[in-house]
Computed example of a mutant assay.
Amino acid sequence: MNTNDMNRNLSLALGVAFLLQACTSLISGAFLFNPFVIPGDISTTMLNLGHNAGMVHASIIGDVITALGIIFLATMLFLVVGKQNKAMALVALGFYIIEAVILVVSKFAAFVLLNISQEYVATGDNALVLMGKLALETKDFIYRIHIIPFGLGAIIFYYLLYRSNAIPKWLSLWGLFAVPLVLVGVVLKIYGVNAVSVFAVPYVPFEFFAGIYLVVKGRN
């Protein structure tokens, strides 16, 4: 296999990794879990979760797949940009692995929440409401924390992508501009300011766009 073929294969694999990670995280959260969560109404949330256990299980599995996708994406990014600065690329890879581990841990909290919710549906015991609220808050807190190592690793990887010219510089700059905003939004959310969605808007389409671009580039 010549160098051009290897570059095309790497580009294609990196594009697939971007798309896999973006799609699984969107589906597991936005479509399989979040619709059952009613802000400020933990009792209804627990009833929704308890009556839709199959969807919640699918969300948990989806996020586990997302975690594996994160490691796959980090590996592909390392292979693409490692020659620019191996030490920096290794640090970024480490951050992504930490992100994936924290995401999986948050799914344990989601599983506990589901079990409590099913028990609440079966018994109606109001004492379970406080436990459910605690489990939901724990899950959400851990989930938000996983964004921090992602952001740190992504900034490094996108900087190395900018230097490598593996993707157009404007696309790398898009990522470098958008990721710090995501970090700001998460930190504000941890301190009770509900601004995550606003700060995440510039980044949301990035992984889809980058994935599609790299898949087309790799296939061509």
Rank of each mutant, 00 (worst) to 15 (best):
T123I: 07
L161I: 02
P180C: 04
L10P: 00
G124M: 08
M55H: 13
Y158P: 01
L32D: 03
P180A: 03
A127H: 11
R163V: 05
A109Q: 12
G50H: 01
I71F: 02
G94N: 05
N2W: 07
G124S: 08
L10Q: 10
K86Y: 12
I60T: 01
S11Q: 11
R219M: 15
M76P: 09
T3H: 11
I145Q: 01
L12Y: 12
F72L: 15
I155S: 01
E99P: 05
M6W: 08
S11N: 08
K169V: 08
V64C: 09
N165Y: 07
L103Q: 08
D125Y: 02
F31S: 08
L113W: 01
R144H: 13
M1W: 12
A135T: 01
I156F: 02
K189S: 15
E207L: 09
M88D: 10
F177H: 05
F111H: 12
L130W: 05
L183H: 03
E99H: 14
A53F: 00
G185F: 07
L161S: 00
L32R: 04
G15C: 10
N165L: 07
A89S: 13
G82I: 01
N126Q: 14
I156C: 04
F206M: 08
A109G: 08
V56A: 06
Q84I: 13
N9C: 11
V64H: 04
Y203Q: 10
G151D: 05
L114M: 12
T3W: 03
V201I: 15
L173R: 10
A17K: 06
A127P: 06
I61C: 09
E99S: 11
S43V: 13
V112S: 12
I42W: 00
A22E: 04
S197D: 15
G29C: 06
I116L: 15
D140V: 12
L152V: 11
A13W: 07
K133V: 00
L93G: 07
F206H: 10
N34T: 11
A53W: 02
L128S: 00
Q84Y: 00
L176D: 01
A87P: 02
S164P: 00
Y191G: 04
L73V: 05
G211H: 06
N48P: 00
L173M: 15
A87E: 15
M88G: 02
A92L: 04
S28K: 00
L114F: 05
T45Q: 04
S43Y: 04
L20M: 13
L68V: 11
W170F: 13
D5K: 14
I142G: 06
I148V: 13
K189F: 05
H146S: 14
F111R: 07
P35G: 08
L113F: 14
V187Y: 10
